[in-house]
Simulated assay, not measured.
Amino acid sequence: MKALSIRQPWAWLITNGYKDIENRTWSTRFRGRVLIHASKGMTRAEYEDVEDYLMFGGFDGMKAIRLPAMADLERGGIVGVATVSNCIPSQERLSPWHMEGQFGFHLTDAKALPLVACKGALGFFDIPPDVAAILRVMRAPAARCHAARDGECSWAHCPQIRDGEPVKSGRHCPHDKHDEDE
Rank of each mutant, 00 (worst) to 15 (best):
G123K: 02
P159N: 01
Y18H: 14
P174V: 09
Q91H: 10
P114R: 08
H157Y: 15
P141L: 03
H157G: 09
K111F: 09
A112I: 06
G123D: 07
F56R: 15
P166A: 03
R171P: 01
K63R: 13
R136H: 15
T108Q: 05
C118E: 02
D52Y: 06
L13Q: 04
L54P: 02
R33A: 14
L13W: 00
Y18C: 06
V131A: 11
Y47R: 12
L35M: 10
I88P: 12
H37G: 06
I14G: 10
F105H: 08
K40Q: 14
R29P: 07
L4C: 07
M62C: 11
A142Q: 05
Q8H: 05
N16Y: 02
I21G: 02
L35G: 11
I21K: 07
S27P: 11
W97K: 03
F105V: 03
L67K: 03
P89E: 06
A132G: 04
P174M: 09
P141C: 10
A71N: 14
E22K: 02
M42L: 07
P96C: 05
K119M: 08
C153M: 04
H175S: 10
N23R: 00
S85H: 10
K40M: 12
H106A: 15
Q102C: 13
A143L: 13
C145K: 04
E180S: 11
R149P: 12
I36V: 14
V131C: 08
G151E: 01
K40P: 09
H37K: 07
L107C: 05
Y18E: 07
I161Q: 09
H37Y: 04
K168D: 12
M55G: 13
S154L: 13
P129L: 02
R44F: 13
W26V: 01
G164L: 04
R162F: 03
F125V: 01
S154N: 12
S39L: 05
A132I: 06
V116P: 05
M70I: 10
L4E: 09
A142F: 09
W97P: 01
Q160Y: 04
P128H: 07
A82Q: 02
H106M: 15
V116Q: 00
H37R: 06
G104P: 09
T83E: 15
V84N: 00
P174Q: 07
G61H: 07
V50T: 09
M62I: 08
I127F: 02
A82T: 09
L54W: 01
E180H: 15
A132R: 10
N23P: 00
A11R: 05
L107V: 10
G120L: 04
G151R: 01
K168T: 11
R66D: 14
G170T: 02
P159F: 05
